[in-house]
Structure formats: structure tokens, C-alpha cells
Amino acid sequence: MDVLISGAGIAGPALAYWLARFGFSPVVVERAPALRPGGQAVDFRGEAHLSVLRHMGVLDAVFEAQTSPRDMVFRGLDGRVRSRLPAWFTAGEVEIRRGDLSRLLYEHSAADAEYVFGDWITSLHDDGAGVDVTFAHGQPRRFDFVIGADGMRSAVRRLVFPEYRPTFQGYYFAIWDADGDDRDMVCAPGYVAAPGWLMFKSSVPPELMTDALTAPDVYFDSISRVRMPAVSSGRVTLIGDAGYGSTLGGMGTGVAVVSSYVLAGEMAAGGDAFARYEALIGPYAHGCQGNTGRFLAPSTRLGLWARDRMFGLLPKMPMFARVDMQRATAIKLPEYVPAR
């Protein structure tokens, strides 16, 4: 069966790998002309994340490419240290730059998947037996299934679920290349920044923040959350941030990798695969969602004081400090048997 995947970030290549293993023929279409390099560090936490990487055969390569996480030191505008967020709290078992992970997953799946860069879906027509797809540049094609793995601003979601948009969480962030890897964060109410990194609170809605506001080498976006009653319709479904996104700190990378394994396995099992996929992944992904802006950059002086006190208590409260690990492991993965 032919499966079209929109998006070659993290979820798309991971899903392409598993679909090929289960006997499908995946095609990945990516709007960007090439893989996007760089980006912020992402991490994996707990056995659910690591076991899928291990079964994919990429865990060793992830460890080889890992970054060296350091404590995040928060300073006031006067330069004095206010608090410190330990590296073990922010980085999980292994941390890797998003661009490095994306390329690793692409290289691991490219031999068994067709990749089309510089193109995107413009329309979908699901007639119950298949999905007719048109593209901005390529010729129309027909697929058995279509999967939206195209992020928080998913084009597939807009086409199939136009009534659902990400919920703005009141903050924006920007990431760009900067010299060094300084983890010292300058903070004030509703604001936190470091070399190559900025987060701030704003009441301006995302639709008014156009791409023209930032330079091409700056990644700029809102902190938002995707929460839908269902992420599937007919022969189309969503995965990763497209269906369950939570900008920054929502363990989206781990959720995407786990979801790719579950979705491919359920599709291979046949029947009402998308319903089973949603029933297993939905509660898991929702439990990992949060608002990093409110956590790192409280909007009041009292909020900053409370944040600093909480960070100071983390080493003394291991059960509270590892609530992220509890969320990351809150799923029992089925055993699927690949076709090859």
C-alpha cells in the first residue's frame, strides 16, 4: 500500500522507516528544499522513548551525536544569579540537536522511502477507497493513506480539520545560531534570553506575527498547543506536533518517535487502525503537553520568585523533579511483528 507522509522533520522519517518495515511503500513530501540543519536540542526520556530508538537501530548513533547539556543559570538584569535549573532535569537520558536527529532518521529510512523536497500538498480528496492528492509542483497522485507529520502549522490539518487551530499559550520564542553554547539566561518578568535563544510573553495573536518579522536564519514561533477530539478522518490521520503538538518542553520528539512505531504497527494490523492508534497515543501525548513559557518566564515578579524557589528545591524533591519521566514512560507499547 502507498502511504503519503507530509513532513520530513522527526515524525515523518521515523514513520517512513516503520511503514517500510511493515510492508508499506512510504512517500515523504517536504516543503523545504532540503533537510533543515541546526535547531534547538531535543531529548529522549525513559524506556518508552529509548526502546523504540533501540528497535530502530539508531540508539547508538543518537548517543554518538549527543550534545553535552549544562545547567541553565538564570540571572537578573543586574547580572546576579537568581537560580539554576540542573542539566539532569532538562536533558533526559540523551540530548541531540534537532537537525542532527532529523538527518539521522532520514538517512536511516531513505533506502526504503521516496523523498520529495521542495513540494507540498494543496488538496486532498478521500473517496473511501483511497486519497487523491494534488501538489504545488508535482503531478497529482493517489495514495491508500495520507499522514500529516508537518508540525504545529500542519497543512494536512488545515485541509482536513480547518476548524481546529493550535491554542496560543501567551508566549513566543526565537532560536538562531550564536557563538558558543552559553546557558546563562537573562530574565525579567515575562522574558528570558540567552545567546541564540529568546522567549517572551505577548498578547499579540499568532496570526498577526507574519514570517516577514524575522530574518530567514531565525526560527520564530508561538508557544501553542494542539488538542483535538480526534486526529483522524477517513484515510487521513495526524502524527507528532500536527496532531498532539506542544511547543517546547512537551517531549514532542519522544512522543513523535513512539507514535510512529504505534501508528505503523496498527496500520499493519489492519481494521480500525487509526482508532486504535488514537486510543493509545492520545492520552499519552496529552499527558506530555505543557506551557514552557509560564514555567521559564513567569509574567510577574512574584512568579519569578516562586520559580527560583522551585528550581532551588528540585535536588531535594526527586519525586517531583522526575514527573517528566513518569509522563514519558506512561505507555505500554504493543509488540508488533515487522514484515522484514
Rank of each mutant, 00 (worst) to 15 (best):
M199Y: 06
S25D: 15
V94D: 07
R165K: 15
R45L: 13
D177M: 14
T214S: 11
L4H: 02
F168P: 06
D60A: 10
L77E: 14
S233P: 07
V258R: 09
D112N: 15
V192Y: 01
P334V: 07
G99P: 06
S68V: 14
I175E: 12
L213I: 14
S102C: 10
H286D: 14
A268F: 12
W18R: 04
L314A: 08
P189Q: 00
Y244G: 00
G148E: 02
R31W: 08
G130C: 07
A110L: 15
F161N: 02
L35Y: 10
H49R: 13
F320V: 14
F274D: 00
S203R: 15
Y171L: 09
P166T: 13
R36Y: 08
V257Y: 08
M56G: 01
G99V: 01
G196W: 10
G151E: 11
G293S: 06
F63D: 04
D184R: 14
G92P: 09
G9I: 03
Q289F: 06
V186E: 12
F311E: 03
E207L: 13
R70T: 08
E163I: 08
F311C: 00
A330G: 03
D112C: 09
V156E: 09
V226F: 03
R142D: 03
A48Q: 07
N291S: 05
G76T: 05
A113R: 00
R36K: 06
D272K: 00
G39I: 08
S233G: 10
P283D: 03
D241E: 09
R322T: 15
R340I: 15
A212P: 08
G190N: 07
G240A: 05
R340T: 13
T210E: 11
S299P: 12
D119I: 03
G76N: 13
D182T: 12
R276A: 00
A339T: 04
V81G: 08
P206I: 06
R80E: 13
Y172D: 01
R294S: 12
D308P: 11
L159C: 08
A34M: 12
C187L: 12
A279F: 01
A174G: 14
R21T: 06
G287K: 09
A194E: 13
A136I: 06
F320P: 11
D78T: 00
A178H: 05
R54N: 04
Y261H: 02
I5F: 06
Y244N: 00
V192G: 00
R45A: 15
D78E: 02
V131F: 01
P33C: 10
M199C: 01
R70Y: 10
A193I: 10
R227F: 00
R183A: 15
F311D: 03
L333D: 01
F74R: 01
G170M: 07
A275I: 00
I281C: 03
G57W: 02
R84L: 11
D211Y: 15
F161T: 06
H137V: 11
H55P: 14
P195C: 05
D211A: 14
P162N: 08
E335A: 15
R158P: 10
A129K: 13
A136K: 12
L53I: 07
G180M: 03
A306V: 14
D119P: 03
G287A: 11
R141Y: 02
G170N: 07
P298V: 00
G128F: 04
L85K: 07
E163D: 13
A321T: 09
R165M: 14
P189W: 05
Y284D: 01
T329D: 08
F173P: 07
L35V: 06
R54E: 12
L50Y: 05
V58A: 02
G270L: 09
I281T: 04
